[in-house]
Design a binder for these strands. Sequence first.
DNA 1: ACATTTTCTTAATCTGCATTAAGTTTTTCT
DNA 2: AGAAAAACTTAATGCAGATTAAGAAAATGT
Lengths: 207, 207
Amino acid sequence: MWHRPRKPVLHYFTMDHTLLLSGIAKHISLEKEEEAYFVSLLHQKKVRKKQLLLEEGEINSKLNYVTEGCLRSYAVDKNGFEHVLQFAPPGWWIADMHSILTQKPARLNIDAIEDSEIIFMLKPDFDALLLRMPKFEHYFRILAQNALATYQYRQIDHLSLSAMERYANFCQLYPSLIRSLPQKQVASYIGVTPEFLSKMLNTMIIK
Amino acid sequence: MWHRPRKPVLHYFTMDHTLLLSGIAKHISLEKEEEAYFVSLLHQKKVRKKQLLLEEGEINSKLNYVTEGCLRSYAVDKNGFEHVLQFAPPGWWIADMHSILTQKPARLNIDAIEDSEIIFMLKPDFDALLLRMPKFEHYFRILAQNALATYQYRQIDHLSLSAMERYANFCQLYPSLIRSLPQKQVASYIGVTPEFLSKMLNTMIIK
DNA sequence: ACATTTTCTTAATCTGCATTAAGTTTTTCT
DNA sequence: AGAAAAACTTAATGCAGATTAAGAAAATGT
């Protein structure tokens, strides 16, 4: 039987920074050598589905940026139930901000919902980057402010909307996630049990 | 009847920037002329209890910093109930971040819980400040990141704790606010009705 | 000082969502 | 392909917290 020859295996591989760099380029412009320095601080990693990147109790030392797949952050309550704080599809940063900033134990876990690829930066390198290249203060300020705006409105939604309204909201806000996520994860994000979400979706719909 | 002569009325008055400037000094150090420029962008205002500073639907054009009293931001749901997002005692910034950033109509209202004094900066001046004095990128990045960390954990608390636990949390986090706020406002912040909070506090306590 | 408004309390009733449990379908692993 | 695990569904029962209502206490305005 004939086999088509495989592509040669590369033992070094090109890190895929294009997404991250183009995201950064929307806010600041970098000289070639600035970019090179920045890139030198990055690490790459492939993670398998369900693999933990951060566990509650650890100190969060990495800023994770997703290039492929999807991560999530979540906390586990005293009854063992998981509550999703954030999903991170490609193009998103994800971390336990409180732990990163204060270097205290994290309350959040971070894991992969599907096989994924990430780029990450270590906290000391992050601090060094900001000292050496103050331009990045701007980029990360914008990032933090946008995230802050999002959390403000999400909190309001949580205080003032019903489960059904929160679900509709989620669908509108993250149409691509709705298609790719298990219902269970969506339920956890909007703050209901999987059983209730299932019932809600199957009794509300006019057949 | 004898009257003690009043202090002469000053028609200019010293703005009280000390709180704000010392807060800034914790993160960046300013030359005298830098400080002077920054101060030149600030405005001062006294607000009476219940006075609205931002109304839902308006575009939020001011970054407000509280020097005395207490402000709050809140949204009103379709049944007319208020939901408090944030309290701002002295030393805190308060704004509808989404509206400030995108210059779209705000979902939040901001008003004074008691007679207060604020310092505010206009959005165009804020943008100009950051362009002219990039140091401030650092200050506002730190601010935004801290706020973000706080909202992340608050969201988790909301997803995973009972009303009683959220109340206990609030007491621990903001002991001075608990003493000065009407119970009603606290109820709205933790996401329960005033009736339920009252019942909770008066039946849980062993007499 | 008194009238008005706002806040707090108590209690009865109601409901949105949780819990439990068991069965079914889909996905994942070997 | 077949077994195991994970995700989804359905239904009965339970409960934390909402709603409604009405009175008491406290704060506020004039």
